[in-house]
Design a protein around this nucleic acid. Structure first.
Lengths: 195, 195
DNA sequence: GCTAAAAGCTAATGGAATTAGCCAACCGAG
DNA sequence: CTCGGTTGGCTAATTCCATTAGCTTTTAGC
């Protein structure tokens, strides 16, 4: 039999595409092997285990997400950057729910886990964006955590269909970003009225 | 052999306790059976399947969470209610991560799924709390979604250990709630300056 | 062309969910 | 108090994966 031309990277990519279709929790080696036109045990020549595969998908996802956010916020600042970055993230999660789920399920295995720099790049993009609001050091950390919580939470709830009411979800997202922008602007030291 | 005195409710409760210890994704029928001093197949006399068990745990979790939030916000209003409710939720998730994960993984099976009223009670508590801010109808829905996103996201990120930096996470939580309170107050119609 | 590593395959193992079918324990009616 | 049906527990069997072992073929470099 001719070879299939697989590699750790191509298996990971196929796995990522698969989980986006069937959901991360339904990932199975058999299904992926079938997709690749290969028998299940052959996958073990490229990834160590299903857990390893899931971890590789997670790294891929975080790296892609970091790129998407960086590209979106590139050359923008203030509310424009916030909206563009947030939109990029929401779109990414909507289009790649399985990968994103893999990213969240992943556990950092050690200090040299490639997941660390990938997540670091995501955080760096948000931090750079927040710099435009000129918060002080602690507030910037709080704001970063708030932003991450909100975006992750929104995407997660949206992904599992938790927003039922008939008010448009896009409107809510836009409203939320406006709310954040206004609140952060109000913290500009220069603008705090001395009373 | 004397009987173990199990029931759907007691099996569910034991399952909930188990997932809080070992994590929802590690739930197995064998482990639960062992905990209950019974052989695996016996569990099927009380729950239909592992999926059924997970769903029951989800319902339990949402009901408990609804109670916790209701109790915390009872008799309070404004920022006090917001802080108390949010704190109750964060505490609940921290103490019962497995149950909460079950609640999020659950899928609503139909219009008479008991999960529906349970989630409804959670939302009702938040909505009641938000009424204190006197938003208009659409804004209240946006604010509700924002609040849910933020609290869910914060709890989820905290649960998987995503907040690394050495700034205190409690401080961030408190800061975030203050941020929300201030922003919502700023939307009081009475206070909007006519320009 | 020759050889060693890499990549597939088949067959076997082991664990977990689930089902079938058996038997003992409980509960209520007489 | 005992009889009979129902309930709840058990063992054994099935199935579905993930994973491993060991064999074979392709392929890259010489």
């Amino acid at each position: 039999m001719p070879r299939a031309g697989l590699s750790p990277a191509s298996v990971t990519e196929a796995g990522a595409a698969l989980v986006d279709e069937i959901g991360f929790e339904n990932l199975s080696m058999g299904l992926l092997a079938e997709r690749l036109g290969v028998k299940t045990p052959s996958l073990y020549k490229h990834v160590a285990s299903q857990a390893d595969l899931a971890h590789r998908i997670a790294v891929l996802a975080m790296a892609e997400l970091a790129d998407a956010i960086r590209d979106a916020t590139q050359g923008r600042s203030g509310k424009e950057a916030l909206v563009a970055g947030a939109h990029a993230m929401r779109t990414y999660v909507a289009e790649h729910p399985g990968r994103y789920a893999a990213g969240n399920a992943a556990i950092i295995t050690g200090p040299d886990d490639p997941l660390v720099p990938a997540i670091g790049r995501v955080l760096a993009s948000w931090t750079a964006m927040l710099h435009g609001y000129r918060l002080d050091r602690d507030e910037e950390i709080h704001a970063l955590r708030m932003l991450r919580s909100m975006l992750h939470g929104f995407s997660a709830l949206e992904a599992i269909g938790s927003f039922q009411i008939n008010t448009d979800v896009d409107d809510s997202f836009t409203w939320m970003l406006g709310f954040i922008d206004q609140g952060l602007k109000a913290k500009w030291p220069d603008l705090i009225p001395a009373h």
